[in-house]
Write a protein that binds this DNA or RNA. Structure first.
Lengths: 312, 312
DNA sequence: GGATCGTGATAGGAGTTACCTATGAATAAC
DNA sequence: GTTATTCATAGGTAACTCCTATCACGATCC
């Protein structure tokens, strides 16, 4: 007794036979020999445990089971066809949903430059934004919840590939009416004398700021911690201290009339690199590289205060 | 390049993997080895021309195509399952539609005896009646429009199998007020002197009557031809002649008070056999034989004026 | 009525496929 | 560094599918 499931080939064979009601013609249409079709149909009958066709040298008739099976076989074959087509369609690059994670200290300054050009160039791409902290984003990438992410160095996740988008320097941001405001680039060591405010835990900008401070020889920090970059800026404006902001953020937050001032550091200025990150195992690596190129072009076109990688 | 269609086994393999997201576990559930599953999924990807899963030693993730394909694969597999089940269900004997052809000179006298017992015994059987002439019925059997038929001998169709239901004698039917009405069984030769009315062409009763008349030594016939048996009876009642009717019909049409008389012929009396006919190639032969037995029982229970085959 | 044509089933053999066991490569976790 | 877990690969065997050639049966034709 054949105990296995029907085969697509068998269903295809039977469907053709059900349509033509003639073994030779059906076999010819399928591009197979008549005995092969005969065997396939016989195997299907064996599998299903029912006679599907009444064969005579005179005529081929479908049994009741045959009628029922033929109908469903057509449906199944259509489903397989649709499946094959869906596999192609869904896999097309630059189409469909793309879940993009972006860290909060980059999102508000980068996305305005990106969204319009991306939509223009890839109209079928549905960008779904997730503004989350680095750890959450990495977890999302690993689990498949996210396809792609914009993160800042260092990225410590394993199995991740980062494509350089741009580098940005940190700038010193201080209250706009500060009488001791610097008039030119300042040395990193200036941080030793200043009350540096940072964001709360979890934000990578916090860790980056701490690292810079440590490098500058500063130990303690003001205890106040801002939950968001907007709050941090308000604290500085309120005179509670200074802070470090990436140039893209500083350009916006310390713009003329904002009540804040910003100045660069002397070379070598501290900074961070912004990367487009995806799972190394992703089959869409090529697509993402192309996407990174487009993003760099958009950044350049938007005249963001950053350094682009050499190639761009 | 693999150019063929996906296999049910491949879809099953991929569906299991999509559910478990773990090659070993999925393979175990399918009762196959992990390499076999690995190969099956790889083959499916090759066939579809798309990466379906992102594999790492750490995790297995579905690509977008993978998600789409998994969903449709489940649908296809459900369809196959349903198909297999439908094949069983539809093939069950004594269930579903059964197209039964019955000749007009039998239908009104046999069916009252059959329908109730059949419905009682086979409640799931849907008898669909087709009252047609022999030639049409045979054509219907050959083409598959009909599954089964009640015909009278001789049946000349090839590839048909006839199961004897009963034999019925022909009776001489005459006007009830005929002064020369016979008082007992008459000889066949009596037909020579009588104006025998027959039905129009196509009815097998006409051919049978003609044959009996020829045997009796009668040549010409009255030119009037009745389109139906009811008409024929009216013609006889109107005094236009006599006719031959099978005993089952005569018992009804020449019943007391009908204005008609009927008498038997002396042995060997002419008659005809009623058969249950199906295509010899039908896989339902056994079912039909059982049906024939039930019909004979019903005929017997209904006390129809016929002779049943010896076995019954 | 015998020969011929057309039908589907069967036989034998070649090519391919699918599977299993054993092993390899890569990555986490300790 | 070592171990454990994961999926991929290799080699060999068993099974399947398909093809060509032929058979058996029935209808048709001369």
């Amino acid at each position: 007794m054949n105990n296995r499931a029907p085969t697509v080939a068998q269903l295809r064979a039977f469907a053709a036979l059900a349509e033509k009601l003639h073994f030779r013609d059906a076999a010819a249409e399928l591009g197979m020999s008549q005995p092969a079709l005969s065997g396939a149909v016989a195997a299907l009958e064996e599998t299903l445990g029912t006679r599907l066709v009444e064969r005579t040298t005179r005529h081929v008739l479908l049994t009741r089971s045959g009628e029922a099976v033929a109908q469903r076989a057509r449906a199944v074959l259509a489903g397989v066809e649709e499946l094959a087509e869906a596999a192609q369609t869904t896999g097309r690059p630059f189409t469909g949903d793309l879940h993009l994670g972006v860290i909060p200290t980059v999102a508000p300054y980068l996305l305005p430059a990106l969204l319009r050009p991306l939509k223009a160039r890839y109209p079928e791409l549905e960008l779904i934004l997730h503004e989350e902290q680095t750890a959450t984003i990495l977890d999302g990438l690993v689990s498949g919840r996210l396809d792609l992410a914009v993160l800042a160095t260092p990225v410590e996740g394993t199995g991740m590939t980062g494509l350089a988008l741009y580098d940005e320097d940190f700038m010193l941001v201080y209250p706009g009416d500060d009488p001791g405001a610097p008039r030119g680039p300042v040395a990193l060591t200036a941080l030793r004398e200043l009350p540096v405010l940072v964001m709360e835990e979890g934000h990578c900008l916090r860790d980056q700021t701490l690292e810079v401070c440590q490098e500058a020889g500063r130990d303690g920090l003001a205890s106040t911690r801002a939950a968001s970059l907007a709050t941090l800026v308000q604290l500085v404006a309120g005179g509670l201290g200074v802070t470090l902001l990436p140039s893209t953020a500083a350009a916006v937050e310390a713009r003329p009339g904002s009540g804040l001032g910003a100045t660069r550091f002397r070379d070598p200025a501290p900074g961070r690199s912004i990367l487009l990150v995806h799972r190394s195992s992703s089959p869409r690596a090529a697509e993402f590289e192309q996407l990174a190129r487009t993003m760099r072009e958009a950044v350049k076109a938007h005249r963001m205060p950053v350094r682009l990688p050499a190639e761009a």
